[in-house]
Design a protein around this nucleic acid. Structure first.
Length: 433
RNA sequence: GCGGGUGUGGUGUAGGGGUUAACACGUCUGGUUGUGGCCCAGAAGAUCAUGGGUUCAAGUCCCAUCACUCGCCCCA
């Protein structure tokens, strides 16, 4: 036997049972996004490597170098499976001249992204995100609006007890000064740092803040905090965001250890955590990225947005006990006895579907017992089995057997569509007794 | 890239050196000649992840590889 081919590491098959969750999530996300005035766009999954190198490269060259799926083209150009969304958003915004639209431009998308990481709970090499961005707007109210879009999604899906993790990461005016102070403090306590944190201290000092090493909580409690070192502009922005959240009765935790590895983030950063779904507990991560547009060669453009991982929302729904409804199965099953009755069943099935009535037809290469067809109908949750035999065919009618109880009757072919429409109008799910 | 755990029919499990690998669910068939669920009877389906080794004898012990999984790094 030849070797069986299997899934590529870190990829996932989303089977129907699981897909129910995805349907619920994307339906709620799209509906909400529209209510908020966001429009959907779809972006290429592949971009030039350069976009990500420049967009997310500085200060977080780790995944740029080691985690991107990059291919060399015959002409020497290098293209990359997108490892994140925001850079692509901004590229499209600039390239298509969306800056000339009446601001603010509010866009969302849903799709996969790729990172060559070691998979673990809540983290895959291919993962899907609901992503929403507001570009061309520096009003703190925009920050709060994307936060509310994320939170509304979770609420609408049935999540309870979620709160925001919130911080400000400053801006080019105040962030460097803060980092200096932080580094000075940590340097003073070098002996209390783990090897990994010493490394971070030189490479990306802010990351030391979300270190998971033991003892860091105590050490960091006395460290300089960004909130005390924001410039006036950032200070005011942060205060406005908090004020609006208060006015909207949103609970949030100011978390000075919440940071972003990517450099283009400025001012607001936020996440929403769901306990119990593993070490990767952030349902979403977002914030303001006023520095990105210039990084990738565009005009200075403020932006704020978030990404929420669909797979993590699914984990969260399971953790919270949220059950998405299954799509109702076709109410009608057509059984037959082969030959002319099989043809008639196929014809009738197409008529029913055209009339908006879901129908399955029995498949049978050769003859098949009615018993096995009935079993199949029941298994698939049909409410009515239409039996088409030689007798029925000759008389121009079908035998209708209701599976949930009730009288078996015969209905003339001509009357069948309205009859079934009336029977299935209630939209009751079939009783699977 | 580093560390821990786990690999037995489609799924979930039992079996922890000794003849034909067990159970549940699922699947299929039959119990009516044209009638589902529940029930009953039966059937199919596993070279026990792969490759080495130890042993008279290996799902069972050892090693390696691979896969999955959890965590670190990093992040949705």
């Amino acid at each position: 036997m030849t070797k069986q081919i299997q899934r590529v590491t870190g990829m996932q098959d989303v089977l129907p049972d699981e897909r129910r969750y995805w349907d619920a999530i994307t339906a709620a996300a799209e509906s909400l996004a529209r209510r908020f005035g966001f429009q959907r766009i779809d972006l290429p999954i592949i971009e030039f490597e350069e976009l990500f190198v420049r967009g997310v490269g500085q200060g977080s060259d780790f995944f740029v170098q080691k985690e991107m799926y990059t291919l060399a083209e015959a002409d020497g150009s290098r293209i990359t499976l997108r490892p994140e969304f925001t850079a692509g958003f901004m590229r499209a915004y600039i390239q298509n001249g969306l800056s000339n639209w009446t601001p603010p431009v509010k866009l969302y998308t849903i799709g996969p992204s790729f990172r060559r990481e070691r998979p673990q709970a809540g983290r895959l090499r291919q993962h899907s995100q609901f992503n929403a961005e507001i570009m061309g707007e520096d009003d703190p109210a925009a920050d709060v609006e994307v936060m509310m879009l994320a939170m509304s999604l979770y609420r609408e899906l049935g999540f309870k007890g979620l709160t925001f993790q919130l911080n400000s990461t400053g801006c080019p005016v105040c962030k460097p000064g803060y980092i200096e102070k932080l580094v000075a403090y940590l340097d003073q306590h070098r002996d209390r740092l783990a090897a990994i944190d010493k490394e971070r201290l030189t490479k990306n000092p802010l990351r030391v803040l979300d270190s998971k090493e033991p003892g860091m909580a105590e050490l960091l409690a006395d460290a300089p905090q960004i909130a005390d070192h924001l410039c006036d502009d950032c200070q005011e922005h942060f205060a406005d965001v908090r004020g609006l959240l208060d006015a909207l009765d949103q609970t949030y935790t100011i978390n000075f250890r919440l940071v972003r590895g990517i450099d283009y983030y400025t001012k607001t950063v936020f996440e929403v955590w769901q306990e119990g779904i593993g070490a990767q507990a952030a349902l979403c991560g977002g914030g303001r990225y006023d520095g990105l547009a210039e990084d990738i060669g565009g005009p200075a453009t403020p932006g704020v947005g978030f990404g929420s991982g669909i797979e993590r929302i699914v984990l969260g729904m399971k953790e919270q006990g949220v059950e998405p409804p299954a799509a109702p199965p076709p109410p009608v099953y057509l059984a037959h006895f082969g030959g002319a009755t099989k043809t008639a069943a196929a014809q009738l099935a197409f008529r029913l579907r055209a009339a908006g009535i879901g129908a399955r037809v029995a498949f049978a290469r050769r003859g098949r017992s009615l018993k096995s067809q009935m079993r199949e109908a029941d298994h698939h949750g049909a409410r009515f089995v239409l039996i088409i035999g030689e007798d029925e065919l000759a008389q121009g009618l079908v035998t209708v057997r209701p599976l949930a109880g009730g009288e078996q009757t015969r209905v003339p072919l001509a009357d069948l569509v309205p009859w079934l429409q009336e029977q299935t109008a209630g939209g009751r799910p079939p009783t699977a007794a």
